[in-house]
Nucleic acid binder design. Structure first.
Lengths: 125, 125
DNA sequence: CAGGATCCAGCTAGATACTG
DNA sequence: CAGTATCTAGCTGGATCCTG
């Protein structure tokens, strides 16, 4: 036992919800966007510059999805040129902790996983 | 502040590792397989029957990927007919806790997310 | 029983061009 | 500046058939 309540139970409804979140958060850009928004509101193009390799289309799509889920807020300032700021909602901020836990696990076990992969690939001619 | 160490920092290397894990764990079947293996070793076809809707190909692929990452162990009993048991490695078991935390978040905020979606979809004619 | 090999539909994400 | 629209390559996952 390492601490947590120990799920053990395995209801399909629960797993569906969990997997939903995992899939949402596991896509290519979501976490990068959330992390970049962690510090405070950021404008569209600043966000784009801050996330290396993201296309404009993907940034738009990722932000829309996050907005739809209530994790990110979009504030438009109707000026010329237009200004749009994105920020994390309280719900969005609350996501950082659980993800941080998984992140901790990832960091702690990265080497072990890499070694396992190398071993597997070596044995698999 | 809600408890956890507060990452705040945002190194690209760390995020890459985290996102890797999230992507691995966020795919369609991985968590279902891990959860089904939680109780103990399971044979291939038992696993298949236990996970509703999974195709043989996807089960094989998911198991191979988990085995490669060192999360699942594969034990072959060379009998006729052959018997293959899959089980979680210690590393695989250690993944359940962090995922459980995220799962807790998912369960706790499912309604809020659903409401946010409904609102967003309603406003988006 | 436990897969490997093929084939194929659908979605994802990127590149590019255009707009209020 | 902050998008939308369009087109397309590539990957994911499912169906089907075959084998030690």
């Amino acid at each position: 036992m390492t601490g947590v309540p120990a799920p053990e139970v395995h209801s399909p409804i629960q797993c569906k919800a969990v997997n939903d979140i995992l899939a949402r958060v596991g896509d290519k850009w979501t976490m990068q966007v959330v992390m970049t928004l962690s510090a405070g509101p950021v404008r569209f193009n600043a966000l784009r510059r801050g996330i290396d390799g993201i296309s404009q289309r993907m940034l738009t799509r990722t932000l829309r999805a996050l907005e739809r889920d209530g994790l990110v807020a979009r504030e438009v300032t109707p000026s010329v040129p237009p200004r749009v700021d994105y920020s994390l909602t309280p719900l969005g901020r609350s996501l950082r902790d659980p993800v941080g836990v998984l992140g901790g696990w990832a960091m702690a076990n990265r080497e072990e996983i890499d070694e396992a992969r190398a071993r597997f690939d070596a044995e698999t001619d």
